[in-house]
Amino acid sequence: MKAAPFDYFRPASLQEAAERLSVNSDDGAMILAGGQSLVPMMALRVAYASELIDLNAIKGIDTVSRSERGIAIPPLVRHADFHSSDVAPGPLGHVLATVSRHIAHYPIRQRGTFCGSLAHADPSSEWCLIAAALDAEIELLSVSGRRRIKAKDWWAGVMETVREPEEIIVAVHLPLLPDDIQWGFYEFNRRAGDFALGMAFCCYRLTEGLITKPHVALGGIEEYPRRIPEAEAVLEGATPSAEVFGEAARTASKAVNPLEDPATPAAYRRDLSATVVRRALTSATQTKSSPALSA
């Protein structure tokens, strides 16, 4: 099918986009960045826009910037830009490169954007999981100014966020990861490239052999991805072992409130949540991105 008619506006700056959105968002104007979710939804007539404000002609918003503490990802950074681990320093670059290859298929990754994934807020979005797992901050712009939202406060439900209709995501901020971090990602779906039925990202550091500051996050299981504090509490101060990982995985699966769909009952997703956490934690013990191990 074809999208319903809409007006088209091509701003030259984010400020101009925000001004246009403040005037037209009440009528149903929307931001168009990569369009790899919005355009098919418009073609299937499950999304309608009175006007599309296309960010693609704006200069200078297609490159990741680095600071001492982290990276900022502006609106036109595509999923495929993370295929190379050089895009972010240290282990963070390896995490993003690994995870990016799980997003949809190659041609979709050439166009879809990181910020767009956060705006779309699909429960199965890999970037949403990473944002939740690494405590990202989402920076919004509107005519009334800028504000930053912490990832844990970002989602309001399935494909719902606290973003107001007149706000644009102008950056997602991710913290750098320490060189000695152990991390693992595991995603399950029935066919490569499909939406994840369940996925986990886990990371921790070792202090004298004991796990410190563990992060355990699940995506595709609940209405939106989040860290699971109950599972993190099991890991904190423990020695990494199959038993500890198994207990953390079981604890996570008890703590979640899984989504249900006709092909996937909630009990299946609950079971899957334990599997993906256990596999992500097991994979974390084999972290290769840390310089000490890869040298």
Binding site: Y8, G35, V39, L52, P107, R111
Partner: peptide
């Protein structure tokens, strides 16, 4: 970049 021509206007 190889892209879907149906997902671009």
């Amino acid at each position: 970049r190889a892209v879907r021509a149906c997902l671009m206007f």
